[in-house]
Every structure is written in C-alpha cells, then in structure tokens.
C-alpha cells in the first residue's frame, strides 16, 4: 500500500494525476504514509478509491461489479471533481484513535494509548500476515516487536521493513503521546 502511494506521488510530481485503488483494510497505512510524505490532509479523500477487503478471493464478476459501482468516483477523482464515496456514505476517517491532547503520565496508560493509536495499522499488517505488538515505553522510546507469520508473499518481502514501520508508528503515536520521542521496532 505504501509503495502504491509512493508511486502515485512520483507520478503526481511529474504532472500526472493519479488515482489509487486500495483495499479498505489498508486505510491506517495509507494515512500514516500520507503524513510521512507530507501530503495534504484531504489526499486520501481526493485520490484514493476504496475497495472492500479482501479482493483476492472474489470472482471476476464480483470484481467487475466493484469497479462498475465506483467508476463515477474514479472519473471524478481523475478530473478533480467532488463525489461521494461509492458506498453511499461520506469518506470515513481512518481508524486512528485521537485523544484531546497529548498524554503524559504512567507508562501503562501511555502504552495503552499507543496501542489504541495504531490499532488500525495492526489490523492492516495482520491482513498481510504480520503481527506488530507494542511492548514498552522506556525513557521516551516506544519499543515494539514485529513478527512475520504466514506472509501473503513467499519471502516476506511484502511486509514493510521494521525501520520504515517504526516511522509510521511514530507518525501515528507522537500526536497523542507527548512522552514518545522515538520508536524502535525489532523483528522476531
């Protein structure tokens, strides 16, 4: 998902308007990537067309129908027009938990808040066969563990590398946790 967005941004930078089809399970990764790449707040709404996850196990007729239902949205986003999301509802916010103000205080509470902030990202990773667990906050460092289980790709290369994932977690956690200065994720 992150790579698709980076490809789209590369094309946009060359003057090529680009729309991305994305399975909705990847919304948290899309939002984290948006923040990391410095994209506008409305980038996801204007450039991404969401599809219900999963799509890999659907028949061609079902997949064709999914696109048929969204073609007006695709057209609109290629030409910069405003259109409601194809599910009939306004584009939903990402599943990132936001607190009213950055939290400080007890490490258990802070760790719980961090876990809540990345809940959607964890679900996205799980869809690719990886498991991310935040273990502790120690001296301003948020520690986590990434375990690759049955990855959807044979060699596990589809799973985002831990350093890149740490940056994504940082982008999601730092706005809600004042005590977190950096994120370290180890692969197990």
């Amino acid at each position: 998902m992150s790579c698709c967005m980076r490809d789209a941004v590369a094309l946009e930078g060359r003057g090529i308007p680009t729309v991305i089809l994305v399975n909705d399970v990847f919304k948290p990764i899309a939002e984290a990537t948006r923040v990391l790449l410095g994209l506008p707040a409305d980038y996801l709404e204007k450039n991404i067309v969401w599809l219900p996850h999963p799509t890999s196990n659907k028949s061609k007729d079902v997949l064709d129908s999914l696109i048929d239902e969204r073609i007006d949205e695709i057209r609109a986003k290629l030409t910069g027009k405003t259109v409601a999301a194809s599910n009939g509802h306004a584009p939903s916010r990402t599943a990132t938990t936001k607190l009213d103000a950055p939290q400080t205080g007890g490490s258990d509470q802070a760790l719980a808040a961090a876990r809540a902030a990345i809940e959607g990202l964890v679900a996205s990773l799980r869809a690719d066969g990886a498991h991310l667990v935040l273990d502790a906050i120690d001296g301003g460092v948020l520690h986590g563990t990434l375990r690759v289980g049955d990855a959807v790709c044979e060699d596990g290369s589809c799973i985002m590398p831990a350093p890149q994932l740490a940056r994504m977690v940082e982008a999601l956690v730092r706005p809600v946790l004042a005590d977190v200065e950096t994120v370290e994720i180890r692969e197990s």
């Binding site: 003057g15 090529i16 680009t18 290629l78 030409t79 910069g80 982008a171």
Partner: peptide, 20 residues
Amino acid sequence: DPRGVPSPSASPLAKRPPKL
C-alpha cells in the same frame, strides 16, 4: 513543543484535467 512532528516537504499534486 520544540520536538514537533515529522513534516517532510509537501509533495506537489498534479493539476487535474477538466475532462477525460
């Protein structure tokens, strides 16, 4: 807060065509 949050330089978006 002096730490701020990551703020990479904004990526430009291409101008949209009026029709397809």
